[in-house]
């Protein structure tokens, strides 16, 4: 399927700007998102192709304007809700609870 993720040959994305001495992760939350992938996939909640496809289904603006591990987070949330592992309501409620506790 063609989509925004099929970037080879497209124009206008700017300079590459490699980061010197780049750390493996830039934020604590990136580590948690990375570390959850294999254990959750191993439960059969989704497979790698479904995960990648969930990222490829992102709209172009969100795909290009969010970071790599935000793509992963989006795929987690999308697939787990679609498959009924989590409901959108319980995710929203838990976010509200955490936001209040850590304000």
């Amino acid at each position: 399927m063609n989509g925004v993720h099929d970037l080879g040959g497209s124009d206008g994305h700017g300079p590459i700007n490699p980061e010197p001495n780049e750390p493996v992760f830039h934020e604590e939350w990136e580590k948690r998102v990375f570390g959850m992938f294999l254990p959750v996939a191993a439960t059969g909640a989704f497979n790698l192709d479904e995960f990648r496809h969930a990222i490829e289904r992102m709209g172009a603006p969100s795909y290009l304007n969010t970071s790599y591990y935000e793509h992963w987070l989006h795929a987690f949330e999308t697939l787990l809700v679609e498959k009924g592992t989590l409901s959108a309501e319980e995710l929203a409620a838990r976010r509200a609870q955490i936001a209040q506790e850590t304000h």
Partner: peptide, 9 residues
């Protein structure tokens, strides 16, 4: 985003 990740985990 930190809140989203904590909620998910």
């Amino acid at each position: 985003i930190e809140i989203r990740v904590k909620a998910l985990e």
